[in-house]
Amino acid sequence: MSDIRLEGVTKRYGTFAAADQVDLSVTQGEFVTILGPSGSGKTTLLSLIAGLNRPTSGRIFIGGRDVTNATAQERNIGLVFQSYALFPHMTVLENVLFPLGVRKIGGAEADRLARDALKLVRLDGLEARRPSQLSGGQQQRVALARAVVFKPDILLLDEPLGALDRKLREELQVELKQLQRTLGVTTLLVTHDQEEALSLSDRIMVLDKGRTQQVAAPAEAYLKPANRFVAEFLGIANFVDLPDGRNGVVRPERVRFTAEGQGRPARVVEAIYLGQMVRYHLALDGNQSVVAAVPFLGTAHAPGERVSVSWESADVWPVT
């Protein structure tokens, strides 16, 4: 187990910078998520850390060791891709034994380690199957077992749950988090799913156009976004004017309905029922629109209805 440190890491393709002066420090055992839209450079960053690619400039440290010019083989990293990337011609057990074989661990010792890893991802009993005989979720569990069986220094996951349906994804998120806690392995996860980022990570790093936008704990990034991009990318942002002329962001669940005459008058444009919550798209007087999310308690306002809303000034976070 080790920490990861990136110092001014840049990767250029021609004049285009896929990663631009990225700094990041991940402490030992921490779970950090790289979050950003498609093409923001997430995979690029991960492949630089994994050693599948060399940075144009900057340095990469794993466990205090400068690995900038080390090969992928020398880095002792567990890697998981969205496409599973299992060895199609090997059984589940052979897939998990592969990194042990490379490390000259064989016989009963290797067998025990591999079976333990498979038990950890709840796949015991499927050792003899081939990847093509497994469901997507099971294949991804094999990939996880293969990535941790040799006790890697760090674990890198590139959208590991991206190909799974929603329910399975949520299930595996919980398992992934538990696995990471059990092993205590330093983990870097890439995703463009903000819910996944917020629910799994100790900290998140928001990336856009190859540049770091913010590195913070999920709650902090959500409530105190560093800029407009982060505010809009993490959930729904209501931008409101502040008395000092600046802009501020209010989250929908901070918007409250008030008795008539106490808040700002508004008209309900759309009411979207989400199960536990109802999300209202409201038009304030003066052409401004606001989204409010309130718990669903049996009744809801209908579109067209006149309402009043307000929010605490403490819930408004100034952004540039």
Binding site: S47, A50, G51, L52, T71, A72, Q73, R75, N76, I77, G78, L79, F81, S83, A85, L86, F87, P88, H89, F98, P99, V102, R103, A143, R146, A147, F150
Partner: peptide, 27 residues
Amino acid sequence: FDQRIEQVAWSLGASWGYTMRKVVLPN
């Protein structure tokens, strides 16, 4: 043949030649 399968093999410590013999050629 998905290149990421090879990349994973490298990351698991397998040399280029070993990956060729044990992963790429069998497939």
